[in-house]
Write a protein that binds this DNA or RNA. Structure first.
Lengths: 123, 123
DNA sequence: CTGAATCCGGATGGATACTG
DNA sequence: CAGTATCCATCCGGATTCAG
């Protein structure tokens, strides 16, 4: 989605951008992983199970563009690039933590609601 | 996205479901609208600018399934269906409010980061 | 090692028409 | 009124290949 499909269903969305980002599974996983410490491209690729090089690159670029992640090229050969959370990134991370907590607390309720709903639907 | 594309990139995602939901623009808008009070289908359709009948129906069903929204069929003719937030829905709404606040506070920083990034890219 | 470019299948969402 | 069904354009993400 990146930033609105067509480009202009504007609403009030100052938030849409952030929602688009955290609505993206990979972004969240990358942020969570980087919260454990700075990390390099391939290391991230290995540890984030299932992500493709392409999506990791795309995700990192988006996060970097939004200022959540810093990209540090170490002048060595072969080149190494280290990614880390910025202050803004940490701020977002703490928001995510809040969401995670909420999600954990309420997941049983959601699960239950779904089962009830699905049972009725099957019948 | 609904619930994981392929169906099984599992991770630790108790949160993924919620993230998928609030990552969806329509869901957020519907919740926000219902937070202003119960509402009927066509009324929602009119007030949520740009949504199609289909997407409203799909969105409402998802929200209902997860227990965020209640669907109340009034036994009159012609049939009326009133949607409203459940307690769980209100709980989610307050989380969203937190996110909105955070987003508002940090949007300047993000905007700035983007401009900086894009300027460098253009050059 | 760290990516960028290309190709491509599948899912998503819009438009439209139809129904109870 | 409150949806459902169908068709179709679009976009996303995976796999693969190439490059600095």
């Amino acid at each position: 989605m990146a930033n609105r499909t067509g480009g202009d269903r504007n609403y009030d969305c100052p938030v849409r951008d952030i929602l688009d980002r955290i609505g993206d599974a990979w972004s969240v996983l990358v942020i969570l992983e980087l919260a454990r410490g700075p990390c390099r491209f391939n290391a991230l690729c290995r540890v984030i199970d299932g992500i493709s090089q392409r999506m990791l690159a795309v995700t990192l670029r988006r996060l970097e563009r939004d200022g959540f992640v810093s990209r540090n090229v170490l002048p060595v050969a072969p080149p190494q690039v280290e990614y880390a959370l910025t202050d803004l990134g940490w701020s977002l991370k703490s928001q995510l933590s809040g969401l995670y907590e909420w999600a954990d607390n309420h997941q049983p309720a959601i699960r239950q609601a779904r089962e009830r709903y699905d049972d009725l639907a099957d019948a």
